[in-house]
Computed example of a mutant assay.
Amino acid sequence: MANNNTLLVPQASQALDQLKFEVAQELGIQLSPDGYNGNLSTYQAGKIGGSITRRLVQIAEQSLGGGMH
């Protein structure tokens, strides 16, 4: 089975990791620097993921000409 989460731009992985840490910090959630975050609750992980998604959508809308307001 193919991994559908393959990044088309390999450098994007670093940018996404940075975004994850920024969002977690803004939400007051401490992430482990070693990459293991099994101590996070499902709620916390969802808050981080949802915030990242919102931010990526905003970036995409801006790059496409200001979004749909």
Rank of each mutant, 00 (worst) to 15 (best):
M1Q: 08
N3M: 08
N4P: 13
N5V: 04
N5L: 14
L7S: 07
L8H: 01
V9I: 12
V9N: 15
P10R: 09
P10I: 05
Q11W: 06
Q14M: 10
L16A: 05
Q18A: 15
Q18E: 13
Q18H: 13
Q18G: 14
K20T: 12
F21T: 13
F21S: 12
E22P: 00
E22A: 05
E22H: 05
V23Q: 09
A24T: 05
E26C: 06
L27S: 05
L27R: 06
L27G: 03
G28C: 03
I29S: 09
I29P: 10
I29Q: 11
Q30E: 15
L31M: 08
L31A: 07
S32L: 03
G38V: 06
G38T: 06
L40R: 00
L40H: 03
L40E: 00
T42Y: 13
Q44H: 04
A45N: 09
A45V: 04
A45S: 13
A45Y: 07
G46H: 03
G49D: 06
G50V: 01
G50S: 14
G50H: 04
S51W: 01
S51G: 13
I52A: 00
R55M: 02
R55I: 00
V57Q: 12
S63Y: 11
S63N: 14
L64R: 10
M68E: 11
M68G: 08
H69I: 05
H69P: 08
